[in-house]
Amino acid sequence: MEQEIAALKQINNQFQTKLRAKSKTAGDTYARWGRTTCPGNGTTRLYTGYMAGSHRSHIGTGSNYLCLTNEPLWDHFEESVASLGKITGTEYRFNEHRSNGAADFLGDYMYNQKVPCAICHTQRSVSVMIPGRNRCYDGWTMEYRGYLVSGYTGDTNATEYVSLCLDRRPEKLHDGTTAGTDNRLYFVEGICGKTLTCPPYVSGLEITCVVCSV
């Protein structure tokens, strides 16, 4: 009988260990653009880094934004050979609002500042970015809210909207400003008159966004 009890305890301990491991990895991840921290609502930070994408003059290479880790590790490399895939950092631009650096929107002077990011893990199973809202629907938990941003319409490269919700109170990297030659962020406005339904949308208004989880 004692051996059976000991065996059952061992099985139970193994089950509890697996359950704890699963609880740590279950859920979903999302990028918090413009911040180095994650919300204090049951989320944890996987890593911080630098918002990066293709150079604004490149018509090839990648079109999506990445959160490059600030702790890179290298494998084999050859500095003398130029690889043809390229990636650059990203800056806050908001050229039309440069008189105060978009502080009315973002709470600080952000013109020509470099953009950080954080990858956050939530215990909730699904996260989604909703463009056009700054509040979640009922039953969902808000991770963060902000403004929909993209690259400049006149740049050669194309950038994505998907998941690109800039936090409304972003941070900036403290290693200097940039000259606006690589990859730049701008607020996104709707264009009414043809295919966009107006109302509810209105031409010339900066579109909001929110990241929600459930």
Results as ranks from 00 to 15, higher is better:
Arg124Cys: 10
Thr88Leu: 03
Asn64Ala: 15
Phe94Lys: 00
Leu166Gly: 01
Cys117Thr: 07
Val115Ile: 05
Thr122Trp: 05
Ala103Gln: 11
Leu66Trp: 11
Met51Trp: 07
Lys194Ala: 13
Tyr109Ser: 09
Ala6Pro: 02
Asp104Ala: 12
Gly132Met: 11
Tyr161Ser: 08
Ala118Leu: 13
Thr90Ser: 09
Glu143Trp: 00
Gly27Val: 06
Asp104His: 04
Ser127Ile: 01
Cys67Ile: 11
Glu71Phe: 10
Ser54Arg: 15
Arg169Leu: 04
Cys209Asn: 02
Arg124Tyr: 05
Ala31His: 05
Tyr109Gly: 03
Thr43Ser: 15
Glu160Asp: 07
Thr43Ile: 11
Glu143Pro: 00
Arg169Trp: 03
Asp182Ala: 15
Met1Glu: 14
Gly204Lys: 02
Asp175Tyr: 13
Gly204Val: 01
Phe187Thr: 03
Gly146Trp: 00
Trp74Glu: 13
Met51Tyr: 04
Ile87Phe: 04
Asn70Arg: 09
Gly42Ala: 09
Asp75Glu: 09
Gly60Tyr: 14
Val149Gln: 00
His97Arg: 08
Arg35Ser: 15
Cys38His: 03
Ile5Met: 15
Ala6Tyr: 08
Leu106Ile: 05
Gly204Arg: 01
Arg124Met: 13
Gln113Asp: 08
Asp155Trp: 11
Met1Phe: 10
Val126Thr: 07
Tyr144Pro: 02
Tyr144Ile: 01
Tyr201Glu: 07
Glu79Phe: 09
Thr141Met: 08
Glu96Tyr: 06
Thr177Glu: 12
Arg35Ile: 14
Ala6Trp: 06
Pro131Tyr: 00
Thr48Gly: 15
Thr181Asp: 14
Ile130Leu: 00
Glu71Gly: 09
Thr25Glu: 09
Gly42Ile: 09
Gly151Leu: 06
Ser150Phe: 08
Ser83Asn: 13
Val162Arg: 09
Gly34Ile: 00
Cys165Lys: 01
Leu196Gln: 06
Leu185His: 04
Gly42Thr: 05
Ile119Gln: 06
Gln14Val: 02
Leu164Met: 15
Arg145Ser: 02
His174Glu: 12
Ala82Trp: 11
Val188Pro: 02
Lys9Leu: 12
Gly34Arg: 00
Gly49Gln: 12
Gly154Asn: 11
Thr36Ile: 08
Leu148Cys: 02
Val214Leu: 07
Tyr109Val: 04
Phe15Leu: 11
Glu78Leu: 12
Glu78Gly: 09
Tyr47Lys: 09
Leu46Arg: 12
Glu2Thr: 10
Asp28Trp: 05
Tyr152Ile: 01
Asn157Asp: 12
Ser213Ala: 12
Glu171Phe: 04
Leu166Gln: 03
Ala31Gln: 07
Glu71Trp: 08
Asn64Thr: 14
Cys165Thr: 02
Glu171Trp: 01
Asp28Lys: 07
Glu206Thr: 03
Ile130Lys: 00
Asp182Tyr: 13
Val211Trp: 01
Ala6Phe: 08
Thr29Arg: 13
Ala158Pro: 04
Pro200Asp: 05
Pro39Leu: 04
Pro200Met: 05
Val128Thr: 13
Tyr47Phe: 15
Ala31Arg: 03
